[in-house]
Amino acid sequence: MSTSVGAPAVEEHEKEKAALLDEEGDLTPKFEAALIRIFARFSSSYKEAHPDVQASGSGSSASIPRPEATDVLTEADLDAFSTATNGAALPQESKDEIREFLDIDKDGNLTLRGFIEMYHLQSDNDPEETWKDLSKLGFSSSLEYEDERKQATETKAAGDSATDQVADSKN
């Protein structure tokens, strides 16, 4: 009987997560927006083209410029991304598979299209691995960028504290 009590809780937890793929198996718009933000965060060419945009610090609702076709993830960018998600640089074998099976530029760098293809495949085959990555990169189960929500909460708390101090000084 305790088994059946635990099972619905797991299902409820699963229902809380935003969909990664729609009924046709395509990426949902929220998931694609999260992937664009992640790509922009790690792409050195994107950061060079958009020095004022901080993809890891911009609000989840704030749109960031979409990466251009020339924006890519270099080997060093992939290593930084892999270290953030898996704690270590990407093995050479994985880099070779990326070059063989995903969309790359003429220099062998992963394009945004290739990055989205990579996550489409992973999310279709192992959504929990995708959720682990998203969580490590600061996204909530609703695909909101949590670091930004944390900053907004801290800013509001600081503002409330200042308001309280002003009110106390008037009393």
Rank of each mutant, 00 (worst) to 15 (best):
V53G: 12
L73Q: 04
P91V: 15
D96W: 02
K156N: 06
E93A: 12
E24R: 07
N171K: 15
P127T: 05
M1K: 06
E146Q: 10
D124T: 10
D133S: 14
F42S: 01
I38H: 05
E68M: 12
L21M: 13
S169L: 08
D26M: 14
R41K: 13
D71C: 04
P29E: 10
D126Q: 10
I64R: 11
P67R: 00
Q151W: 07
E154Y: 13
K136P: 02
A9I: 10
V10T: 09
V53C: 11
G57Q: 15
P65K: 01
E100H: 08
E23Q: 12
T74S: 14
D107E: 10
S135R: 05
S45T: 15
S82W: 00
G25K: 13
V53L: 04
Q54W: 13
E11P: 03
L27V: 06
E12F: 11
K106T: 09
T83N: 06
L110W: 00
E154W: 07
L21H: 10
S45F: 03
T163F: 03
E68R: 09
E129F: 08
S141W: 05
S61M: 14
P51G: 09
A162K: 10
Y119W: 11
A152W: 05
L112I: 08
D168P: 03
I116H: 14
P51I: 11
A9Q: 12
E68T: 08
N125R: 11
S161P: 02
D168L: 13
L78V: 05
E75Y: 09
I98Y: 01
G57C: 02
W131H: 04
Q165S: 14
E12K: 12
K15C: 02
G114H: 00
N171A: 11
A162Q: 07
F81L: 14
D52Y: 13
P29C: 12
S43G: 11
P29H: 03
K150Q: 10
A76S: 04
R149D: 11
D22C: 10
N86A: 14
S140G: 15
G159F: 07
I38S: 04
K150Y: 11
A167V: 07
E154P: 02
L20T: 13
S56E: 14
H50C: 07
M118K: 08
A88I: 14
G87V: 09
G25L: 10
E97L: 15
M1C: 04
A62Q: 13
K106P: 03
D107K: 08
E12H: 12
H13Y: 12
E154F: 06
V10M: 11
D107I: 02
K106L: 11
S63V: 09
N125W: 04
D52G: 10
F115E: 02
K136Y: 06
L137T: 03
T74P: 07
K132M: 03
E146P: 00
G138H: 02
Y145S: 00
R113S: 15
P29K: 12
E144K: 14
T85N: 04
V72M: 02
N171W: 06
A84I: 00
E24I: 04
E100Q: 13
A88E: 07
F81H: 01
A49Y: 05
F42W: 00
A158H: 12
N109E: 09
L90M: 15
L90A: 01
Q165G: 02
S45Q: 14
P127I: 05
D168M: 09
L35D: 01
E14R: 13
D96E: 15
V72Y: 00
D124R: 15
Q92W: 02
